[in-house]
Write a protein that binds this DNA or RNA. Structure first.
Length: 270
DNA sequence: AGCCAGGAGTTAA
DNA sequence: TTAACTCATGGC
């Protein structure tokens, strides 16, 4: 089915560093594995995207996944007219970015993996992990074969050695420890959506391999706390070099996470 | 070849 | 509380 939206650019979303299983197939087409599902996407033009799913699956899952109930045009308008030169250029460059609503456990593990890794390396590791510990599926509408992201159950039972074979490096114990914490009830992922931002971050940081930055990423991409503002090495450079450490996230309350996404995507292009 | 990657944990002060 | 050091691996 075809989606019309003036802020939905697949190329920008796929390479924005928030999802690691969305891949470019050619000039206009992309594949995406999210949760247990597979989707084929095609950018028809600047305002139209074709999805391989039917309207029922779209309404039930993908519409929410792509945050298509939220009006990004309003945020874009504020940033373009807000008088901040860097943000204006960032939005101008990264138009069509959105904050996806991804599966919580998958986001938790992938951002634990992300520490001290480049985006290509993260993607490779996530694919290896899915191939080794996920379930093989076949998409009914495209016939495409893919592997789901592994469950906490499976990862909690995996040996350190088998985990490390996927390229995790020293993060093997973090992944294992977090999966075990989820299974034995040390943390209840289902309760996190009920917490406010500060409480959720505090809870997440009890997990091995989850510090302030990863917790913010999980809050933003897995809990859709769009005031979360993850500060990685790139964002830190911006805050220092562009804003002389005077950037005020409070000024963008209600959509700071979206601002962060534009910043991140833009700075990496320079 | 050597540096850096969407950092976190530990230790020392 | 903060600073320095270490961690395994791959991409460029």
């Amino acid at each position: 089915m075809i989606i019309e939206n003036s802020n939905f650019i697949l190329e920008h979303i796929a390479s924005s560093g928030q999802c690691f299983r969305m891949n470019r197939l050619n000039d206009s087409e992309f594949s995406l594995i999210a949760g247990n599902r597979y989707l084929h996407l095609k950018q028809l033009d600047i305002k139209r995207v074709e999805l391989s799913c039917g309207s029922e699956e779209y309404e039930e899952f993908w519409k929410e996944y792509f945050d298509l109930n939220y009006d990004y045009e309003e945020v874009v308008g504020k940033l373009l007219s807000g008088g901040d030169e860097f943000l204006r250029k960032a939005v101008d460059y990264g138009y069509g970015l959105r904050i996806l609503k991804q599966e919580l456990f998958e986001i938790l593990i992938t951002f634990i993996i992300s520490q001290r890794k480049s985006i290509p390396a993260i993607k490779r590791c996530v694919e290896e992990l899915s191939l080794k510990f996920g379930e093989k599926r076949k998409d009914t509408s495209t016939g495409n074969v893919y592997y789901t992201f592994p469950t906490a159950e499976v990862l909690s039972k995996a040996s350190k050695e088998s985990l490390r074979e996927t390229g995790l490096g020293y993060r093997d114990e973090y992944v294992r420890g977090t999966a075990i914490a989820v299974i034995n009830g040390d943390i209840n992922l289902n309760s996190l959506p009920n917490l406010n931002f500060e409480e959720a971050v505090k809870e997440l940081m009890k997990l091995p391999g989850v510090g302030i930055k990863v917790a913010n990423c999980v809050a933003l991409y897995g809990l859709h706390q769009i005031d979360a503002f993850p500060i990685d090495v790139w964002i830190e450079r911006i805050l220092k070099d562009i804003y002389d450490n005077q950037f005020e996230t409070d000024r963008y309350k209600g959509y700071a996470g979206i601002v962060q996404q534009y910043m991140f995507y833009y700075i990496r292009s320079l």
